[in-house]
Design a protein around this nucleic acid. Structure first.
Length: 406
RNA sequence: GUGGCUGUAGCUCAAUUGGUUAGAGCACCGGAUUGUGGUUCCGGGGGUUGCGGGUUCAAUUCCCGUCAGCCACCCCA
């Protein structure tokens, strides 16, 4: 083979493109129902759009190079900086809250694994300019509705929800020093994947006592009631965020039929360490065989940091790779077989011009039409029509055209 | 970037302890057959066994390197 794709990049044969289109159709359809407007930006951006926020170490993860004009550039690894710039430039004139979505192809220079390539398409949905939890609920409801649109149910998918402020309040209630929060969040993020003993060791190294270590290790099992009780039993600081979270759960349950079945309170959801400020969430398949299919949350300070405008914002990203893998595993990808509305067959003595004129008139009516592009026996033509998935075969003879449905 | 496993046709797999021109099914193309649901038969293209070295009379098989894939770290989407 002379050429192959670069590692982590994909050729989309018609079958794969049909799968991608199936997913993206669901994204757009649900986004429309939630009144989001589509936008896009350039796939290639100045490198410093990304380094400014995250520092130079992120360059190792970027597809970056110097262009012919000597500019440091990078293929976009995420959409949020672009969104921040665009929103920042028109912050004052945009109707708030602003509901925008995009389906960019994103790039990342990392070793590929299952569900993780160097390129993928990712739905990004963001709401800008609303600080109340109704916006968070709207966004999560939308993510759930996308799953429902793709015929996934709460039996297959769970939305794990946490809140940075509740987490901080809970850790404080456990008597853990704020200096240790970052280390604790890092451990909490990995509780499911990392041996308990190692987590315990790291927590002890972060300065937690034996009791605190146990409580942190149990965070995945902590319910909203136990967390609320612990916080009010301590100083009560941050208790209002627990109530907001309760409202959030109620709202989602109202927005999506059977919504509560999808939701699960789980403080161990961390979503990286950096910029989230409030509710954060991730969608997982319940079997645990795939990585997260969607993740997002509230980032009220980010637009200020990047776009120079102080606006509350929240959003999520949902990639096509894991989602498609899950749909395939659950047998939820529709049949992608090619179909043709009409396949014209003709006897030997029918001039090709007549077949073409027949095809043209059917096509003018909006049907998809195929026919033999060279002389072939009738049986050959029929065979070709059947393998092409023709819904109707029209046979042209010297007397009349016979329409036989297949 | 680190470590482990894997690598034969488009796909799924064969090839007896290393032993002649690396095979089969499916798919694809061609021909015949069948007067209707993708039948049956015949034929064809397509592999320098990922690539490059080494050991050997002889390598798909053993060794090394490299590339690629999978998995786990790292990191995150």
């Amino acid at each position: 083979m002379a050429h192959t794709t670069l590692p982590g990049f994909r050729d989309f044969y018609p079958e794969q493109l049909a799968e991608r289109a199936h997913v993206m159709r669901a994204w757009r359809e649900v986004a429309r129902r939630y009144a989001f407007m589509e936008y896009d930006g350039p796939p290639l951006e100045p490198l410093d759009l990304y380094t400014a926020k995250s520092g130079d170490e992120i360059v190792g993860q970027l597809y970056n190079f110097v262009d012919k004009g000597g500019r440091e550039v990078a293929l976009r690894p995420e959409m949020t900086p672009t969104l921040a710039r665009m929103v920042g430039a028109r912050a004052n004139s945009l109707r708030k809250p602003t509901r925008w979505f995009s389906t960019p192809q994103l790039f990342r220079y990392e070793r590929q694994q299952k569900g993780r390539l160097r390129e993928h398409y990712q739905l990004n949905m963001d709401i800008v300019g609303e600080s109340g939890v109704a916006a968070d609920a709207e966004l999560v409801a939308c993510a759930i509705d996308i799953c429902r649109e793709l015929n996934l149910t709460s039996n297959e998918v769970v939305v794990r929800v946490s809140d940075r402020r509740v987490m901080h309040a809970y850790l404080a209630a456990l008597g853990i020093a704020p200096d240790s929060f970052e280390a604790v969040l890092g451990v909490a993020d990995k509780l499911a994947r990392q041996p308990r003993a190692i987590s315990a060791e790291k927590l002890a190294a972060a300065g937690l006592n034996v009791d605190q270590v146990e409580r942190v290790l149990d965070i995945p099992h902590a319910t909203i009631d136990t967390v609320e009780f612990a916080i009010s039993a301590a100083s009560g600081v941050g208790i209002e965020h627990v109530q907001e979270l309760r409202n959030f759960f109620d709202y989602v349950a109202q927005l999506v039929p059977g919504g509560e079945a999808w939701l699960q309170f789980d403080l161990s959801i961390v979503r990286g360490l950096a910029y989230y400020t409030g509710i954060v969430f991730e969608l997982f398949d319940r079997s645990g065989e795939f990585r997260a299919i969607c993740g997002g949350g509230r980032y009220d300070n980010l637009l200020d940091a990047i776009g120079g405008t102080s606006l509350p914002a929240l959003g999520f990203g949902m990639g096509d790779v894991v989602l498609t893998e899950l749909l395939r595993a659950r047998n939820l990808l529709p049949s992608m077989a090619q179909t043709v509305d009409y396949w014209l067959t003709a006897d030997d003595d029918i001039p090709v011009l007549r077949v073409m004129s027949e095809a043209a008139s059917l096509r003018a009516k909006g049907f998809s039409v195929e026919y033999a592009l060279r002389r072939q026996s009738v049986s050959k033509q029929r065979k070709a029509a059947i393998t092409a998935g023709a819904r109707n075969i029209v046979h042209l003879t010297n007397s009349t055209a016979t329409d036989s449905s297949v």
